[in-house]
Each structure stands twice: as C-alpha cells, then as structure tokens.
Design a protein around this nucleic acid. Structure first.
Length: 530
RNA sequence: UCCCCGAUAGCUCAAUUGGUAGAGCGAGCGGCUGUUAACCGCUAGGUCGUAGGUUCGAGUCCUACUCGGGGAGCCA
C-alpha cells in the first residue's frame, strides 16, 4: 500500500479488494476518456490504486500528481468497502477520545450527510494536530473505506493520513455545532453555507437552475441574454436603480441648472433593468420561442420575506402563442421542475420536509400530479364576494387582488395553485393584449399557497393601433419604444410569455420562509453586505 | 413607506410588574466513552442596542434613533 506521504504514487498494482485501477485524467474535460480507459487491461495502467469516479477532481492543490479528491457523496453512496480514497472538507464535529482515537464528521458540500472519519492515535500528527481539531477546520484525508459498525451510515473511513489544511479558532468561529437562527446566520452569510440548511438550499438552487435550462433547452427554446442596463424608465414594473458615472456631489449641469445627462456615460439617464421581457419579445418575434434567465433589479422599498432588490427571473416568450397556451406552458413548466427537484435532490428535500416544512414533499408531489385550477379574475371576485370572511380589503371588480384574497383562493377554496386570467385592463401594464370585451386584458397570474404570485404573464398586444393607444393612455411616449412598436409594424404576430421569480420558486420548493435565505447574498433596503 | 413585536454572555433565552444580572448550548481544562447535536465535573465570559430623560435607585418606566423579525402596500 502507499504510505501516508506519497499520496498514491505507488504503481505496484496489487490486488487489494475493492481497489480500482485506472488512468489519470486531470482535466475535467477528459472524464469520458478516463472512464473509458478504466476498461484498459491492468498491465497498461501505470497509475495508482485509486477509486475513480466521474465526479472526482484532480487535487491540483498538491504538487504530487495522481491524486484525485473524491466527493463525500460518492464515498457514502458508491465507493465500495476496501477502497482507498482521498477526500477533503470541513469538520462539522470532532469527538475526540483521549483513549485512542477521534471521530471526525467531515462535510464537503457534495451532499447533506457527513462522512465519519476514524483517526487513530497511531497517526503521526495525532497528538500535535488531530486531537486539537475543532468545528470548521479544513482537512485532506487519505484513508480506507470500511463498513461502519455505528448507526446511520453505510460506511466510514479509517484515516491513513490526516492533513490539516486550515484551522478554525473555536473561540471565535461563529458556526458552532448547534442550532442557529436564520437571522443570525444572515449576519454570517459567508459561512452559513457550512450548515445543513444552507448547503441544501445551495444544492437545490443549483439543481433548480439546471432543471429550468433543461426544460427550455429540450423544448427548443433559445436562451437569450437581455441587457441589465436599460434606458426604458417606465416599464411599469417598479422603481428603478439609476446607473451613472456622474459625481453625485457635483453632477454636470446645463445652462438652466438641470442635471445634464448628455455628459453621463450613456449620454442619457439609464437604469438597472426591471425585466428583460420587452427585449425577449424582439427575439421571440424572429426566432420563435425564447427564454431569459438572469438578474433583475427593483428599487422598491419592500420589506417582506418575499421581496429582494436584486433577484433572478425566468421569462419565456413564445411566438404564435395565445393566453391559453401560455398558461399551459406555465403549468407544465412548474410541474416539471417541482417533480424534477424531488427526483434530483431527494435527500436535501427530505431534510427540508423534516426540518423546515413538513408539507413540502406532499405539496410538490400533489402539484406535479394534479391539474391547476383556472378561473377568470371576474370569477375570482365572485368567489371572494361570497366568501364568509372579514376582509381587510373588501374585494370588488376593478381592484387588484390583495394578499388575503390570493391566500384565500389558494389555501382555502382550491388548496392548490390557481391560474387567474383576464384581469381588468386598468390594473395591468400597457403591453397586455386587450380582449374583445374592451375591459379586460389577456393576463394570467399563477398563485401558489403561502408565496402568492409566483408567475405573472400575458398574451402581448400585437395590434399596433391598440398598443399605441394604451401607451398614450398610460402617459407613455411611443417614440421611446420605437423598436418595440416596430415589432407590430413589421410582421406582427400573436405572442405570449410570463415571468417567474426564481427565488420564490426555490422558497416554495424548499419551504424556506424568508426569501433572504434562498439567495447567497440578499440585497434588500438598507442591506447590501458581503 | 405604514402598523405591531423585539434588542441582556459567542449563540438561544430568563430575570418574581424599579432594588446594581442567571440558565442551556458553545468555549477552556479535567474525566469517561465505537462515538455520531455524546456524557459528567470545574472554570472563564455581560458597562443589559445607542443617546437622552424620570427616579434615592432603571435590564425593567418615558422619548428619539439604529438594527432585526412579523403583517400590509408595491411586485416576481
């Protein structure tokens, strides 16, 4: 066997049970080749008796080549007993025994579970280093996978070498091996991903992003990168952040004393985008079905568990499409990604179901399997007016639905997602298509229990005359949107789309109560730390 | 932005309706242990968010501010 110091550089190819021989592949791009080369005859393989998995990454950290760091997720699930592997991670708890050995629970973020390392006092640095380990230290461990006599784990690891890479002073390290409130962890956002909850949120968020791309890519949607800086200042979606290079203390001024934006970077006032929709429409009206997936900015002074100043939004846009198909897509899309996340992150989802919200798995399963309710706004108002409820805001046709109304519909009346369509034109933006009744527009909102509006969408107004009338009615200058109206002037086409709040989707899927806990570094009024 | 609640040890909280602060966890040390949020013992650790005010005396009452949480609005 390799001794503890050369990290697998031995080439003696013995036949230890469970060892797998394979060629090295230090480029992550060569995974397929490497896996294939594992089929080579043993004699042709010059490399160490190391377990090789597609997820293994070369340990470029060390100068000794031929080492690969195996993910703990793989060790726990796939690596067979007897194999020697190298893992790296951060200690969660260390239970030291003065008698002879220590148990180290190590987590590397690849999965919810930690692997238990048994470190014997025979190790060279046992007294000097291992017996002093505390929560949060980073380690590289070389050892053999063995069956675990303890409960709750298939295997554990007997360390052959424990390299202490970084210590964490227990006196000051904020992440104690105990329960912390989310409020406290928000103040330690750079370290909170070392907890079970935030590790799981990060994995689910990443998986969810992948599922969303998969959904659209596999259906022929084109991914469009719409600009983050915009000059459109009145899309009606909220307050905008200004983008400028002017000195706030001494902005250039014109003869009349007004701020002279012609001297600003873009020679005009510019802002961070509140939506990529208008630009996405232009791509849809030449390339068919498209989607955006990127950050969005709202300068609204919103202080709620459902609002961020910077959040991510997904906005599909489809040509030759009406409201019904738009709603069909929204429903199919949500079902698909919720079923997908249950399938892709089972242990993280079990964690959320056990520790965060005991109903999430049932809820997501139910959503994936049963049809959404679809009602018109008019019908929704009827239901609310008949409801035996003391409304803080009595429902009435022409007034937008309040939070209490949305929750009543999703949580009391239907107990599932509800798609509400055909809102009064007076409460919806200019670009939504005016219906034949002249009073409503082809809008749809998807409401879900607890979160409320998760999707807002519409069939777009494709008739030039109606569009310009509606712009004028909302005191907009159509000239500013000449490129948008051009779509209706040249080869106009019915089209529709919607916007999905990414963080609200993750909130719903995980049961996390506060949106600030499902984005790495939340930006909210008076808060832009990290 | 509006309404409500909160701020006490590193973290989570308590302090009998004004009499100069306690617990659990965490940490340090010791003991014990195939342990797994281990267990047992000892020790250290706080000018009670900030600034004023009332009072012989304020963690406790009053005012303002800051920060945090919940609800509402705006929305995704």
């Amino acid at each position: 066997m390799a001794n503890g110091n050369d990290h697998g550089n031995d080439n003696d190819n013995d036949n230890d049970k469970g060892m797998v021989r394979c060629c090295s592949c230090f480029s992550p791009f060569a995974v397929a080749v490497a896996v294939a080369s594992c089929q080579l005859p043993v004699a042709s393989c010059q490399l160490p008796r190391r377990y090789h998995l597609p997820n293994a990454m070369p340990l470029s950290y060390t100068s000794s080549m031929n080492i690969e760091r195996i993910l703990i997720a793989d060790v726990l699930a796939n690596v067979e007993v007897g194999a020697e592997v190298t893992i790296g991670g951060w200690t969660r708890t260390v239970r030291a025994s003065k008698g002879g050995f220590s148990f180290i629970s190590l987590n590397d973020g690849s999965c919810m579970d930690c692997i238990q390392i048994v470190a014997d006092k025979a190790l060279a640095n046992y007294e000097s280093e291992i017996s002093h380990l505390t929560t949060g230290c980073s380690l590289l461990i070389d050892g053999v996978v063995v069956e675990s006599p303890g409960k709750g784990q298939r295997v554990e690891m007997h360390a052959k070498e424990v390299r202490v890479i970084g210590l964490a002073d227990a006196e000051t390290y904020p992440m104690q091996a105990k329960r912390h409130t989310f409020e406290f962890l928000r103040t330690q956002a750079h370290l909170r991903t070392r907890t079970n909850t935030f590790g799981a949120v990060a994995r689910v968020r990443s998986a969810m992003a992948g599922l969303i791309h998969d959904y659209f890519q596999s259906r022929g949607f084109l991914y469009v990168h719409t600009p983050l800086i915009t000059a459109s200042d009145c899309e009606g979606a909220g307050e905008l952040f200004r983008v400028t290079t002017m000195d706030p203390d001494a902005p250039p001024r014109d003869d009349a004393g007004a701020i002279d934006y012609s001297q600003d970077f873009f020679s005009r006032p510019t802002y961070l985008t509140v939506s990529g929709q208008l630009e996405a429409e232009t791509y849809a009206c030449s390339l068919g079905n498209v989607y955006t997936f990127g950050p969005t900015f709202r300068a609204e002074n919103s202080n709620t568990p459902r609002h961020l100043a910077e959040f991510w939004m997904i906005e599909p846009e489809m040509a030759f499409c009406d409201l019904q198909t738009d709603a069909d897509l929204a429903e199919d899309f949500l079902k698909n990604i919720f079923a997908g996340i249950l399938n892709k992150c089972p242990s993280d989802m079990e964690f959320f179901n056990k520790r965060i919200d005991k109903t999430v798995i049932d809820t997501l399963t139910h959503i994936a399997e049963s049809p959404f309710e679809r009602i018109t706004y008019t019908k929704a108002i009827e239901i609310l007016e008949k409801a035996d409820c003391q409304w803080q805001f009595p429902p009435a046709w022409g007034i937008d639905l309040q939070t209490e109304h949305e929750r009543y519909l999703t949580e009391e009346t239907f107990k599932k997602p509800v798609i509400i369509t055909d809102y009064p034109s007076s409460i919806k933006p200019f670009y939504m298509r005016l219906s034949d009744d002249g009073k409503t527009v082809a809008a749809m909102d998807v409401l879900v229990p607890k979160i409320g509006e998760i999707i807002g969408g519409a069939q777009r107004e494709e008739r030039l005359d109606v569009l310009t009338e509606r712009m004028a009615a909302q005191s907009m200058d159509a000239e500013d949107y000449w490129w948008y109206t051009d779509l209706r002037k040249y080869g106009t086409v019915p089209h529709a789309g919607f916007g999905l709040g990414f963080e609200r989707t993750i909130q719903f899927a995980t049961g996390m109560a506060n949106i600030r806990d499902v984005i790495p570094y939340p930006r909210t009024p008076r808060s832009a730390d990290f």
